[in-house]
Amino acid sequence: MKLTLHVWRQKSRDDKGRLEIIEANNVSTHMSFLEMLDVVNEDLIAKGIDPIHFDHDCREGICGMCSMVINGVAHGHQKGTTVCQLHMRYFNDGDHIFIEPWRAKAFPILKDLVVDRSALDRIMRAGGFISVRTGGAPDGNAIPIPKDDAEKSMDAAACIGCGACVAACPNASAMLFVAAKVSQFAYLPQGRVEREKRVSAMVAQMDAEGFGSCTNHYECEAVCPKEIPASMIAKMNREYCRALKKETCGESAKSWAGA
């Protein structure tokens, strides 16, 4: 099939950038979206034109590298998938496809569809870990964890840090990402030791990076390839409330913010 691509081309960080029309011929319905771009790029290289730059790595939907807004939807319209798992069979011959990079002040565009997402790494560095050596994998059930908590923690840990939540949010807020990274620890006994410090540091870093804040549009959960629910943000808010209380009233304060 033949497609007309409207691709964001931007030479460098300082370039203004513009949408360019690129015709994609000989697109097979079996291709993934990234394979389609590979074929288009082969064509462009043969013609001596700079190929379309885009991020990609595992191409099996788990690394969180691929990042493009396709026809106005981060990762494309297929629910719960990354761009690499979006297949061309979901498009029709003659379609016009708009391909744009993640757009947020905290994600500067480096080239074409490649953005700098190290702001998310800096948020992780601020507190997205536990600061003791955990050694090898412990024996099963050595630390008893209620099944419900284990499940919720795993749901949060599914986040691959792709940044689609930021791209989709009308406010370019990273709160779904931070909520997932805070919650994956907050539900587990190993993570609870530093819970207040963690949420406090990660939220402060998130604010410092220039992300917006949540106004409950729920666009993030609609595009999240790992289908992390926006109610996870309520969990982060609970954690933050707890941290605020502890910072204000000291260690001895009784917790009222809930577990």
């Binding site: 939807v73 947020a104 406010n171 609609a222």
Partner: peptide, 23 residues
């Protein structure tokens, strides 16, 4: 702050869940 966080908008943007009251 939220306007500043997204200085350049999308050429195409689809709203999937949000409604008019929220926006």
């Amino acid at each position: 702050e939220n306007w500043v966080a997204r200085p350049d908008g999308y050429a195409r943007k689809k709203s999937l869940k949000t409604g008019l009251p929220a926006r």
